[in-house]
Design a protein around this nucleic acid. Structure first.
Lengths: 225, 225
DNA sequence: ACCTGAACACCGTTCAAGT
DNA sequence: ACCTGAACACCGTTCAAGT
């Protein structure tokens, strides 16, 4: 703030470390994220980071929580289906924006506050819509499993753009023994290689099927009482 | 086979390497699987492995394909729903038997032959039951996303046994600010901490909901023509 | 053809030392 | 309180050398 100061290197904080870690992992992949490289990116020695994070596992779980903080919470004013649908689309977008995050889910053993708040709101949305505790647990498990699994598969496929998708599919086809895998070949040529196809578009299709089944389960629960 | 031979160290093969890699990863976790450690387990120097696998990525994708080889293929004699359900339960079991495998999905860029055969058979099951090519793609994406995502979450939770589950949940609860996360607290105490609860049991509940929605989508497709 | 030892360029993390 | 340099015990992978 004072006028003629040198561009003083800003103080390092946990938050700045987490954000820099996310950027680095986005650009170089999760294996490209090293303590030394992260220190470099922040103009500091790797060892300084240990004043703000306990270790690399702590860094990763902090990054995961920061990703959750980017996800839109289900709105209180929408009905449950729209609220859950919106947050699911937002959740999926966050996982894809940070392609390393879906696979990281299994290393983050304890959740941060953004994650806990998010989970609480999702569960609350189901409960307030009349889902029993048990059905809420089923719904929560089903929908988040779908979202994580879809993002995991999408991240492993180099199918980001339509162009890429067609190219990769064509390359795959050229070395696929068509006679041995006739159905796979048909699906690839008649569906994946069609112009305009992007795997990411499948997300909302599956999501709507999941929401359909939850709606049916809710009706069944209500008529059973 | 000849009688009085020394216990000659068996010749190393790609297949033996993959099996030893799976065992090592099962026991020590995926980060505990190192080329040096794997060499040790096989009574050989790490560098010898490179005569049979191109590099560690090749090792991992070979291991992933070997996991797929353990999965029961959908039967031709069952109707589509039973066939897909059985193979899904078997798929889930394989992923949990090898807890590192679900997160690895995103590093295995090209699939091995067991994986391709498996996919072909699943796709064929849908096609022969009258699913259109597009609906088959949706169904395949939805069900495998669910299976991967569920396994990913299950692997990250230390909820293998009922006992563990209750203990972990109790530990979580004791440090959870209940006032801030009321719905999460309710779900934990009224559902997760109940005797006999195992998260793994949620798998078939969600799976049946997914199958319900696919059945409905198939009817809709057929009545639309 | 397959295996090895030594070496290279990395890792995460500790610890004592600096300011 | 925060940062650093040196060091430790690891990594994956190469390469020339052995058999």
């Amino acid at each position: 703030m004072t006028k003629a100061e040198e561009p003083v290197r800003e103080r390092i904080t946990r938050d700045r470390i987490l954000q820099a870690g996310i950027e680095l992992a986005d650009v170089r992949g999760i294996t490209g994220l090293t303590m030394r490289g992260l220190g470099d990116a922040l103009g500091v020695e790797a060892m300084s980071l240990y004043n703000h994070v306990a270790n690399k596992a702590d860094l990763l779980s902090g990054m995961m929580d920061a990703v959750f903080a980017e996800v839109e919470l289900p709105s209180h004013s929408d009905d449950w289906r729209t609220a859950i649908r919106k947050r699911s689309v937002s959740f999926h977008a966050a996982l894809i924006r940070h392609p390393w995050s879906s696979a990281l889910r299994d290393s983050a053993t304890q959740s941060g506050t953004a994650t806990l708040r998010h989970h609480d709101r999702v569960i609350g949305t189901f409960r307030n819509a009349g889902f029993s505790v048990a059905l809420t647990a089923h719904a929560f498990s089903l929908i988040d499993s779908y979202i994580y699994g879809f993002a995991l598969q999408e991240a492993s496929l180099p199918l980001a753009t339509e162009k890429q998708s067609a190219d990769v599919a064509a390359a795959m086809m050229s070395q696929l023994p068509v006679a041995e895998y006739p159905y796979l070949a048909e699906l690839t040529t008649d569906h994946v290689m069609r112009p305009g196809y992007r795997y990411g578009d499948e997300f909302t299709i599956g999501l709507d099927l999941v929401l359909d089944s939850l709606e049916a389960a809710l009706s069944k629960q209500n008529s059973a009482s």
